[in-house]
């Protein structure tokens, strides 16, 4: 009797019930495995953002960062920051720096990827060498370029003088007109390999019979690029441009060691301003407010690029 009841139980309620618990167990497992990731992101990203936002609304002379509650809540930092005419300059310089880095880095990266997608002797050695700057620490890159761009003894001045492009030495990093170019060049050098890496991978995914078909249809090299290569590169390019772009927008490691934001604020981007407000002038509230403004701007740019990113990620 009891077994009978048990059997009907299993037949009528058992299977759906068992499936539900299996699904629940799966979900538990899925989130369990994800917990370390979420903890890392939450503890060291979400919580710091919360503190930064909290800080940006605090007035007074903030000295005790561990007990923010004692300082009055205010919008003063935002009013100061937004009405400060310097802010527009910082935003503009951040955009100039970002575009100035991403465009040449993408062009070099694409050119190299097309080259490395061909077959030629020695390619196995050429490829890691071409990608090598990616592995060099940003600070070492900054050190190398601060020497190469040196106003008196830098080799770049020497080479440019030798070929007759300039008559007298240029103090690249100390001159407000050239400083931005001087910090862009090392950043491009560090970032182009990422584009090459992504684009080489995308090129390898193009089936070679597509090129054959195009050749049979009489397509020349340009038309092959236009109708076979480029369509395959568009989505990964867009994603790589956005990832690099948002990264460069808040980049700090090149500008700070090279110029510290000078001369005369010529290389002060938002990232550098945030740092200087906090660690040179100790105006933490203003620093955090600029940081929040920066996040909002970057977020807006990200949303504007949203469609191409979604295409690239799927």
């Amino acid at each position: 009797m009891t077994t009978d009841v048990g059997l009907t139980d299993v037949r009528t309620q058992g299977p759906p019930k068992r499936r539900r618990t299996r699904a629940q167990r799966d979900r538990l497992f899925a989130y369990g495995m994800l917990t370390p990731t979420l903890a890392a992101v939450g503890l060291l990203m979400a919580y710091p953002i919360y503190i930064a936002i909290n800080l940006s609304f605090r007035g007074g002379e903030i000295a005790d960062l561990q007990n923010l509650g004692q300082y009055p809540l205010t919008l003063g930092n935002y009013v100061d920051v937004i009405t400060d005419p310097k802010l527009l300059g910082d935003i503009w310089r951040s955009i100039v720096y970002t575009v100035g880095v991403v465009v040449p880095a993408f062009a070099i990266g694409l050119g190299l990827a097309l080259l490395l997608n061909k077959t030629f002797p020695g390619k196995r050695i050429v490829r890691p060498l071409a990608l090598l700057p990616w592995a060099v620490p940003g600070v070492a890159v900054a050190a190398a370029f601060s020497w190469m761009l040196d106003g008196s003894f830098g080799v770049i001045n020497y080479l440019l003088r030798s070929v007759g492009l300039i008559d007298a030495n240029v103090a690249w990093l100390a001159n407000a007109d050239t400083a931005m170019t001087a910090v862009i060049i090392p950043t491009v050098w560090k970032f182009y390999p990422f584009f090459t890496l992504v684009l080489v991978a995308a090129l390898q995914a193009i089936p070679s019979d597509q090129y054959e078909a195009a050749r049979i249809d009489g397509a020349g090299p340009w038309q092959q690029f236009r109708y076979v290569t480029w369509p395959a590169l568009r989505a990964p390019s867009a994603l790589a441009i956005v990832i690099t772009g948002v990264g460069v927008f808040r980049e700090f490691d090149f500008i700070f060691p090279l110029t510290g934001g000078g001369p005369d604020d010529a290389t002060t981007t938002l990232a550098v301003r945030i740092y200087n407000e906090a660690f040179e002038y100790f105006t933490f509230g203003a620093s955090a407010a600029i940081g929040v403004v920066t996040m909002v701007i970057a977020g807006a740019l990200l949303l504007a690029a949203g469609r191409s990113v979604r295409e690239g990620m799927n």
Binding site: M45, P48, I49, A52, I243, V246, G247, F249, R250, F252, L270, A271, V272, I274, Y275, A278, S287, A288, G291, V292, T294, M295, A298, G299, L302
Partner: peptide, 8 residues
């Protein structure tokens, strides 16, 4: 990626 490290 877009969080400014200098803010964090």
């Amino acid at each position: 990626r877009m969080l400014p490290g200098t803010l964090l």
